[in-house]
Design a protein around this nucleic acid. Structure first.
Length: 897
RNA sequence: AGGCACGUAGCUCAGGGGUAGAGCACUACCUUGACACGGUAGGGGUCCGCGGUUCAAAUCCGCGCGUGCCUACCA
């Protein structure tokens, strides 16, 4: 069979996915075992406007590894894909498109605009889903969901109505975050805090009524003073105790406002007196409620001053007003001073406009009620299990402990319309459908609330709504609760906690068993990747350059760690893919007469040493990889499989088998050896498949002997594919420590001789003779039976094995474990001085180690208190080293001048 | 301001009470019939600093320094 010398990822990547998909391999229905255990994951739905970035690629890789692994283990496996309608960002996208046509959404009207968005979604949306195919994501496309689907929308209305009926959703006036640009309310979680903005702190003086006294307040937002309805001081602050209850004259507005006492005020900060603007500041709002202060609105939705601010300011932008007011204070002689000040501001998470806290009527959800069950579940049973547990369990718990009301309504057109209707009298009717609302109202003359719900409202239902809730569907019963949620840490509050709330509330069970929080991928300078910085690494470009499988290996290894992206890691895994390719190429070039799955017949004790060895190594690799995947330790899993394949299989097993495998005569021995190499390879490919789906499928399909018999019994009727093959299971009885130790001594011998060759500058083509001595008969027999292989690996023309060494003076020597020695006669080739130096170096190394160990043993405390096992281990090591040193000394005598 | 992580080879990172690891980079040799995206042999580390616990600390604890993240009602 002719296959190219280098692996070209594009070929495999272009070929297999569509077949997997078409054959239905991704759907859980492929599993025919009625008793199969269930494994399910719902994808964190990417925004319909989004395209793939490294964070997605990381999450998807981990989900796919878990999904493929469990599928191969015979689980009824579902990974459900879908998208989020992404209210604000999608609306912005479409409005941008309209603007190019000279239109606004108001020109179209609501209905036409919504149609337009749907159109946009069909045309441009969901690019990321196409990109997921490129990643090899084995999601069940037949269950793809969109948060605006009819089913999911029904779930949203159901959620809303039930919460309303319980009194947990209410409509009321509150101080909310308002984005003056997007013209909508935002939840606290959609607001970004930006720290360390340079600004000013203005010290303003308010005169006390009927007095010469003035009270100085400090503020970063002088323009809000027009809305002040009090000044607050700390009740314990003696400087102001006589003023509490006094009346101040608010300058410019010339309004009378009281001085109130409130614990909130920090006497240490500023002047210890705070202006209170209940209508434009979160804290002042709360204080206003405590003291029953009036709320004066001086800033409107467009961040312009209102009529209430006074004719002089009406219509001014908030920042213009600020300047004007400061100027005015100066003129009045009431501006005490202005100080430079560093402070933080809140921005719209979407457009970065500075948020304006505004009083307005919105819909709210009392999260503290809905959050009670998740909090109890965490406190009592530590569920869900966070990976890593530290610090996320605490982050999650702390948030649940301090829940506040969630502003649900958004003044947008794209999203789930609030299921509330008003009659002419303004009475509100919340209902699942308009028909229900009419029935309740007893009239058809109703107007639906114009607002839509926060995008995260529908996201909160994702695990249950995608599976059919509120109906009790088969999918919901089968796949819920889901096995694990894989996501980034920044949406633990926004999303993870809320899914737990709805799952527990409506289905009575946690949304997922485990929550795996991935690390963050930074650029090579440690900066967060972002569009605006333009420092993002495009996963697709990395795929193009190094292949999807290599990229996945890097991503899986990242796991929960924050990592700076560097291509060299991907390059090394690209090389690994090529190594896999070429190892397979070797096996295929020598596959005539061989079949994967054969060659290891009979009692393992009758097998050759290197066969027992590789099987033992394979069992351990299988054991460790499975254990690591199940513990979400992907880095360890990747390392294990990488080193098993490269070091054990390629460097040693193939090399040790080469003579047998490449024999020209078609003997049964040769074919059995070929089958054994193929068998180990085939198992290794399966082991690798969850991480590297494309290359493993590509190569697996080429191996002679693969077929339906290798599929997991749950998939027995399916077309042969590695993705439905059984994941290798450890066969404990094949773990053979003796064989591992024996091959280890062969490896040591070979390495020592190669070292001599290299240090002595012996030409690679130049054959050498080997004189090997070992006092122990067991080691001698290992060397004897392996002498052909050893000779091949070190290019020896002859190997003489005896009990004690009798080598010519002109030999290079090395001491091995267990008292064995090796000498390489080098008549005429040896440089005595150089050999002396080399041996001296060896001896120094040993002496240094011996000194350290001796010192430890000399410590009586150690001997008395350390476990006996440790002490004897140390004694053993010391005696090994002593023996080596002794032998080395003898050897050096030979070279004495 | 609090909380939490992290600091290991030149770089990116594993590991973690008992012999310091990988990949890349580096040095030397090798185009040997799987693979130069390769092979063989090497060099390179007071595991941030200082104390403590322990027979034993890179690992556990405290403090300090540095870096990053999260939370917060600093007007």
């Amino acid at each position: 069979m002719e296959i190219p010398k280098a692996y070209d990822p594009k070929l495999a990547e272009g070929e297999h996915y569509s077949r997997w998909e078409a054959q239905g391999f991704f759907a859980p229905e492929i599993n025919r075992d009625p008793d199969a255990p269930v494994y399910s994951i719902v994808i964190p739905p990417p925004n319909v406007t989004g395209s793939l970035h490294m964070g997605h690629a990381l999450q998807h890789t981990i989900m796919d590894v878990l999904t493929r692994y469990h599928r191969m283990r015979g689980y009824r496996t579902l990974w459900l894909p879908g998208m989020d309608h992404a209210g604000i960002s999608t609306q912005i996208q479409v409005e941008k498109q309209l603007r190019k046509e000279g239109l606004s959404r108001h020109d179209l009207g609501r209905e036409k605009f919504e149609e337009r968005v749907w159109q946009w979604k069909e045309q441009y949306g969901g690019e990321i889903l196409r990109q997921m195919r490129r990643e090899g994501a084995s999601v069940d496309w037949s269950r793809e969901r969109f948060t605006m689907d009819e089913g999911l929308s029904r779930a949203v209305r159901e959620f809303f109505v039930r919460m309303y009926e319980k009194g947990w959703i209410y409509r009321g006036e509150g101080l909310i975050n308002w984005c003056p640009k997007d013209q909508t309310a935002l939840s606290d979680l959609e607001v970004e805090k930006v720290e360390k903005k340079d600004g000013k702190l203005y010290y303003l003086q308010y005169p006390v009524k009927n007095s010469d006294r003035r009270v100085t307040v400090a503020t970063t937002r002088p323009e809000t003073m027009l809305g002040d309805t009090a000044v607050a001081v700390n009740p314990t602050d003696e400087r102001y105790s006589d003023l509490v209850g006094a009346t101040l004259i608010l300058p410019i507005a010339n309004r009378e406002i009281p001085v109130v006492a409130d614990d909130f005020v920090d006497p240490e900060f500023g002047t210890g007196a705070v202006k209170v603007t209940p209508a434009h500041d979160q804290n002042d709002y709360a204080m206003g409620l405590r003291h029953a202060l009036p709320q004066v609105r001086v800033i409107d939705q467009h961040a312009r001053m209102t009529a209430e601010a006074g004719a002089e300011f009406e219509g001014l932008d908030r920042y213009e007003a600020r300047e004007r007011i400061v100027q005015k204070f100066e003129e009045l002689g009431l501006l005490e001073r202005v100080a430079d000040y560093e402070f933080s501001i809140s921005q719209c998470g979407r457009c970065r406009t500075v948020i304006e806290p505004l009083l307005s009527v919105q819909w709210f959800l009392k999260q503290s009620d809905l959050g009670r069950k998740p909090l109890e579940l965490m406190r009592e049973r530590h569920e869900p299990r966070f990976v890593p547990e530290v610090p996320y369990e605490k982050v999650y718990t702390n948030w649940l402990e301090g829940l506040y009301d969630w502003t649900l309504s958004r003044q947008l057109w794209w999203g789930h319309r609030i299921p509330a209707w008003y009659d002419e009298a303004g009475r509100v009717f919340v209902a699942r459908t308009e028909v229900d609302a009419r029935r309740a109202a007893g009239t058809d003359n109703l107007t639906q609330d114009p607002d839509v719900l926060d995008t995260w409202f529908s996201s909160a239902l994702w695990p249950i709504s995608t599976l059919g809730w509120p109906d009790e569907t088969r999918d919901l019963k089968t796949f819920y609760p889901t096995s694990v949620l894989v996501t980034a840490r920044d949406i633990i509050f926004l999303w993870v906690a809320r899914m737990m709330m709805t799952g527990l509330e409506f289905v009575g069970e946690r949304a997922f068993d485990d929550v795996f929080i991935t690390g963050t991928v930074f650029d090579k300078h440690g900066q967060r990747m972002s569009k605006s910085k333009g420092n993002g690494v495009d996963p697709l470009e990395v795929f193009d350059k190094y292949g999807v499988d290599a990229t996945r290996l890097v991503l899986a290894g990242i796991g929960t760690t924050d990592t700076r992206w560097n291509d060299s890691q991907v390059e090394s895994y690209r090389n690994f893919a090529n190594k896999i390719w070429n190892a397979t190429r070797f096996c295929l070039m020598n596959s005539e007469g061989a079949r994967a799955g054969q060659g290891f017949e009979g009692e393992s004790q009758t097998w050759a040493l290197h066969d027992r060895w590789i099987m033992s190594r394979l069992q351990k690799a299988v054991r460790d990889v499975s254990k690591s995947i199940e513990a979400y330790e992907f880095h360890a899993a990747v390392q294990t499989v990488y080193h098993f394949f490269w070091d054990d299989f390629c460097d040693w097993y193939i090399e040790l088998s080469k003579a047998d495998v490449t024999a020209t005569d078609a003997t049964p021995q040769r074919d059995a050896a070929r089958s054994r190499v193929l068998t180990v390879l085939e198992q290794a490919l399966r082991l690798l498949h969850p991480f590297m789906p494309f290359i493993t499928e590509e190569l697996w399909q080429k191996l002679p002997g693969v077929g339906s018999q290798l599929l997991h019994p749950a998939y027995k009727d399916a077309e042969p594919t590695i993705m439905l093959a059984s994941y290798p299971q450890t066969r404990e009885e094949l773990i053979d420590e003796r064989a591992e130790a024996d091959v280890q001594s062969i490896i040591e011998l070979v390495s020592r001789v190669r070292n001599i060759r290299s240090e002595m500058n012996i030409k690679p083509g130049e054959p050498v003779r080997l004189l090997v001595a070992a006092p122990a008969a067991s080691i001698r027999s290992v060397f004897e039976s392996g002498s052909q292989q050893i000779a091949r690996l070190v290019r020896a023309s002859e190997i003489l094995i005896s009990e004690s060494l009798d080598a010519p003076r002109a030999s290079a020597r090395a001491v091995l474990a267990g008292g064995a020695e090796v000498a390489v006669p080098l008549e005429g080739l040896i440089d005595f001085a150089k050999e002396r130096e080399r041996l001296k170096g060896e001896r120094e190394k040993l002496e240094k180690e011996a000194a350290k160990l001796e010192a430890q043993l000399a410590n009586r405390q150690f001997v008395e208190r350390a476990p006996a096992e440790k002490v004897s281990e140390l004694r053993q090591r010391i005696s090994d080293i002593a023996q080596r040193t002794r032998m080395l000394a003898e050897t050096m005598e030979v070279f004495a001048e």
